[in-house]
């Protein structure tokens, strides 16, 4: 198992190196940074001096290595637009995105698993069919439209919940949280629903399909033949066997919740990294874009790694180095 983990960590590093190359390439190929930094009235001498100062006259590999060295320390340079270290700006924005992702992730996971089990067990019931039909809407409607509809219903018409922003936040020094104030919690609800709805329907459909598959297995029949209660068959025998694929998808979805919070954050003007990224794109603020890219890829890789570890916890057949086996 240790060898497996090491192999996966090694693979993850290669992925990160590749993403790093793309991020690095942005500096060089999306416009000339020297052009951007020097104004209209520049001389050739100015350009040469700045190139030397920034190390841009050095070979490509040396530059790439330096970039990686700095990136590994969390140093992505200064934002072109704000003139502050990118790492600081990200750290400031990250709590908002992570809290939003956490809430919608939990919503999607719990809602998806519960509804998935329900629709699988009551396969032919009216309620299950209604849920399945509604979930089709969740899968096929674009998320921004759901966001706009939510704002229209709950903010404009009913006036229950705020339509934008994070509400009041409490600054804990290293983290600013919206969990501790009423307005912060109220502000979380609509964006979390918008962000989590698609994932929830996806998980629900996956759980349902897996459950139906598992419920046809021989060991479920055998459990019935031993007089085990339906409750135990559904939640102990069947659910556990559906978890491996569900965890894979949920892990990947958690990554994409963070990555694609961009749309939700734009609709709700949520002050997170997604909104930061959109603004950075508009101003061609390459250090911010590169740092965002690296951050998201680190998250994806880390989540995938954790998901792989979880398989071992769930499925004993994968713990190959366990003693025993055979007779």
């Amino acid at each position: 198992m240790l060898a497996y983990i090491l192999r996966r960590v090694f693979q993850s590093l290669i992925v990160l190196l590749a993403v790093g190359l793309v991020a690095f390439a942005m500096f060089n190929f999306v416009g000339d940074p020297v052009d951007n930094m020097l104004g209209q009235e520049r001389t050739q001498a100015d350009i040469e001096r700045l190139r030397q100062q920034l190390g841009l006259d050095q070979p490509f590999l040396v530059q790439y290595w330096k970039f990686l060295e700095q990136a590994a320390q969390g140093n992505f340079g200064l934002s072109y637009r704000q003139g502050r270290p990118v790492a600081d700006i990200l750290a400031e924005r990250l709590p908002a995105t992570l809290e939003l992702a956490l809430v919608s992730g939990i919503l999607a996971l719990i809602g998806g698993v519960v509804l998935g089990i329900f629709t699988a067990i009551r396969r032919s019931g009216v309620a299950a069919n209604v849920i399945m039909t509604v979930s089709l809407v969740g899968v096929s409607l674009p998320t921004f439209l759901i966001g706009v509809v939510l704002i229209y219903v709950f903010s404009v018409e009913l006036g229950w919940l705020p339509s934008f922003g994070r509400g009041e936040v409490v600054d804990l020094g290293w983290w600013s949280t919206g969990f501790l104030t009423v307005s912060g919690l109220k502000a979380l609800i609509l964006p979390a629903i918008m962000l989590g709805l698609y994932q929830m329907t996806l998980i629900m459909r996956l759980v349902r399909t897996e459950m139906l598959e598992v419920l046809r297995m021989d060991y479920i029949r055998f459990a019935r033949a031993r007089g085990i209660r339906e409750k135990s068959i559904n939640f102990k025998h069947a659910l556990k066997n559906t978890l491996v694929p569900v965890i894979t998808i949920t892990g990947l979805q958690l990554g994409s919740i963070i990555a694609f919070a961009i749309i939700t954050e734009t609709v709700f003007q949520w002050p997170g990294v997604g909104l930061l990224f959109i603004n950075a794109v508009q101003f061609v603020d390459i250090p911010v874009m590169a740092a965002y890219l690296m951050m998201i890829s680190v998250m994806f890789v880390a989540i995938n790694l954790i998901v792989d570890m979880l398989y071992f916890a769930i499925d004993p057949r994968l713990r190959l180095d366990r003693k025993g086996g055979g007779h």
Binding site: M217, D218, Y219, R221, F222, A223, A225, R226, K236, H237, K240, N241, I314, D315, P316, R317
Partner: peptide, 16 residues
Amino acid sequence: MGMIFQDPLTSLNPLL
């Protein structure tokens, strides 16, 4: 009344 199934490879729950 107990029942014994055909395929022992599939009649036991693999995760318990």
